[in-house]
């Protein structure tokens, strides 16, 4: 292997250096391929900075990041320190919410060995499979992703031949061929849930979609001709197609609500931003996404009886994992 990799790597670096720098005066020649190559290069550069899932770090490493930054943030991090002990960073590649959820959930099962939770999750996964089938997705487009997630779920339970350790879980979460498949599994599940309950999600999606104005105008024209139901269906489909199903598309409260509902897993999101409307001193907001039992819509925050075992830290545009004391 070593012998084989050596010259190949050399060849690659040679190719990279001999590659002529694109002539930016000539944008006409800067086609889609160039843009995609540039995107790939940026992603590769980011990848060197942070693995998909980082090591557990003390919360002080978060404060260090803002040493010369906003005093409000430093105050908030101090408040966070009262409840939370550590942070685990994820790569900022647009998949950070799903990746954080993946690791946090599997790590929880590994530590708790909660067989009942695994059985419950599995039956929800089967429900998600039926949802996708009833929406007309071809089985073979999603079954590999489902199988791989179920395999990970089995493997964090001890006592069967394939069980894995904490270190192995971290390695797998950093292995693109596993990690990306699990992320994609969550994207399928999220998309299925949003499409299935399109009437519920539609009001939250209007204006959120990253579709271009032209697409919107087009869909408004279509909407004018179609029934209200069709309009709602169209917006939801467009949202799922452009903002849920492609890898690297960032997640918002819509995605979190849908994933939490579909899998029946409560999620706490702690917000670290510059807002400070509390005159009595700085406090840190959080929001609990609580899936309601019995197929009711997500009763976010209203039921305090279930407490989430997954806590994510949200900073505008990014999610990491938080660990309680």
């Amino acid at each position: 292997m070593q012998n084989k990799d050596g010259p190949l790597a050399d060849g690659e670096s040679e190719a990279a250096t001999s590659n002529p720098t694109p002539d930016f005066d000539d944008w006409a020649k800067f086609g889609d391929d160039d843009i995609m190559q540039q995107q790939t290069a940026i992603r590769a550069e980011e990848a060197e900075k942070t693995p998909f899932v980082g090591d557990k770090e003390p919360l002080s490493s978060l404060a260090a990041e803002y040493q010369s930054g906003s005093p409000i943030l430093l105050e908030k991090i101090k408040v966070l320190g009262e409840k939370y002990a550590a942070i685990r960073r994820t790569r900022g590649d647009g998949n950070c919410f799903f990746r954080s959820f993946m690791f946090s959930y599997l790590e929880h099962i590994l530590e708790s060995q909660d067989r009942a939770e695994v059985d419950r999750a599995k039956s929800n996964v089967e429900q998600c499979r039926k949802t996708l089938q009833s929406l007309g997705y071809a089985d073979f487009t999603f079954e590999d992703f489902f199988a791989l997630f179920l395999e990970q779920l089995e493997s964090v339970l001890q006592g069967n031949g394939t069980s894995i350790s904490q270190e192995e879980l971290l390695l797998r979460s950093r292995d693109q061929s596993i990690s990306d498949y699990v992320v994609m599994f969550f994207r399928f599940v999220t998309s299925g849930e949003i499409r299935k309950r399109s009437e519920f999600f539609e009001p939250f999606i209007m204006g959120l979609t990253n579709a271009t104005v032209e697409q919107l105008v087009f869909s408004l024209e279509v909407a004018a001709l179609a029934a209200v139901f069709l309009k709602c269906f169209h917006f939801v489909n467009m949202f799922c197609k452009s903002s849920v199903e492609p890898m690297g598309e960032e997640s918002d409260h819509v995605h979190i609500t849908a994933l939490s509902d579909a899998l029946g897993v409560p999620i706490r999101v702690v917000y670290l931003d510059r807002s400070s409307c509390d005159s009595a001193g700085v406090s840190v907001n959080h929001h609990d996404f609580i899936p309601a039992v019995g197929g009711l819509p997500n009763a976010s925050g209203s039921t305090e009886t279930v407490s989430p075992f997954i806590t994510l830290l949200y900073r505008p545009g990014h999610y990491d994992i938080l660990y309680s004391k």
Binding site: A138, T141, F145, M184, F188, K241, S242, P246, G248
Partner: peptide
């Protein structure tokens, strides 16, 4: 002959066969 189509670029998803 290459094609400028969103699903072949940044809007790709494994959902497409």
């Amino acid at each position: 002959g290459s094609i400028c189509l969103d699903i072949l670029q940044n809007q790709w998803s494994p959902i497409y066969d």
